[in-house]
């Protein structure tokens, strides 16, 4: 019974997704490398998926740049710098979007640094 209900809900969800145009994703939190981020003095990234939907079509990013499954994309600043993920040549590694070095544009919890 429960399984059946689950399947029904899943099917309903599947039917609902195309009608909303995948617009309900909202903001995704990237914090799987939180230890490294702490060392670098930044907080997790709050990725505004809805903001990107307005300027990009789905197939511009998925599945070529980002696999459309949570936890499948091992995003790191190193790979961004190498032109992958956010730092793809037409994205945040080009004059079209803000450059990668603007930490506070993506990372939360970036504080003003006082020298020594």
């Amino acid at each position: 019974m429960r399984v059946k209900a689950g399947i029904l809900i899943f099917a309903l969800l599947l039917a609902a997704v195309p009608s909303t145009g995948l617009a309900a994703i909202g903001t995704i939190r990237f914090d799987d490398k939180i230890e490294s981020m702490k060392k670098a003095g930044v907080g997790p990234v709050m990725f505004p998926h809805d903001k990107h939907e307005k300027t990009n079509k789905c197939d511009e990013c998925h599945p070529k740049i980002f696999k459309d499954k949570r936890g499948e994309n091992n995003i790191s600043m190193k790979l961004n710098m190498e032109g992958k993920f956010c730092g793809s040549p037409n994205c945040h590694n080009s004059p079209k979007a803000f450059p990668l070095f603007q930490c506070a544009s993506c990372h939360t919890g970036v504080k003003a640094v006082k020298k020594n």
């Binding site: 190498e82 070095f101 640094v113």
Partner: peptide, 26 residues
Amino acid sequence: SMVGIVQGQWCGRCHGKIAFPLTDCS
């Protein structure tokens, strides 16, 4: 730290102003 450099400390005193910009990570 990169955060400080972006805010104009250390390397950021020149890079991004008169030297090549921070855009060029690699």
